[in-house]
Amino acid sequence: MKLKYFSAPYLVWMAVFIAVPLLMIVYFAFTTDDGKLTMKYISDVGQYANIFVRSIWLSLIATAVCLVIAYPVAFILSRMDKHKQGTMLMIVMLPMWMNFLLRTYAWMTLLGNNGIINHIFNMLGFESVKLINTSGAVVLGMVYNYLPFMILPLYSVMEKIDKSLLEASADLGCSSFSSLVRVIIPLSMPGITSGITMVFVPAISTFIISRMLGGGSNLLIGDLIEMQFLGNAYNPHLGASISLVLMVIILVIMTVMNQFDPEEQVLM
């Protein structure tokens, strides 16, 4: 018996439930209801350029903020005593195990007009501030939800950086800043690129965070897709076109990221 036949059941499954559905997206994007070829829906996506720009912009900001916050965290973790590292990493990752709807809901109650933050403002004698239903709230939600996705890959590369390399660069006259720029950052590049993809991809395609924290005025690509499939605007052809464009954007970003990564391994 040949071992390669073991994969037959999965190959069928993969063809029917992974390959065919993706081909259906392509098919729906380029056809009308009667199955005629059309470019109408793809060109209609252009009408939503502002939503695309907003999604890319907000998720880029969120990714940058995550990188800035996570980089020192990962470094500090990686330089701790070995037996402490495991526990600390667990504490950092623990909130990730809560469902992200609940995590987003937590911010909904904090930022709300009658929420605790505004309550504290009032007690200190300030006016209430509109916190929820702003684009800032959406970015905050993205950072909060996806920060551990940035910390984890950064930590796993930094943990492998040999302590003696840092000592050597210090011995050879590097200040701690130039050690950072010339030794730590280049060596942690694979972690940076995979962290960026792991935050950017879910951030640009989310529809929950924008809906729960952004109100109706901060629609993202994800909301647009969801509305075409489950909303009142039911139009799977347009929805498929938008999904296709989203996939292309992500593909471009990942190709760009791969250029920075010497090992060309963006995923995990």
């Binding site: 439930f17 992974i18 559905p21 993706l22 991809v201 897709i225 499939f229 799977p236 498929a240 989203l246």
Partner: peptide, 17 residues
């Protein structure tokens, strides 16, 4: 593909099927 693709695309593609 399902790992790289955004979840919403996987969800929507299965819904079409």
């Amino acid at each position: 593909m399902p790992i790289i693709n955004p979840e919403i695309v996987t969800g929507v593609s299965l819904m079409l099927l």
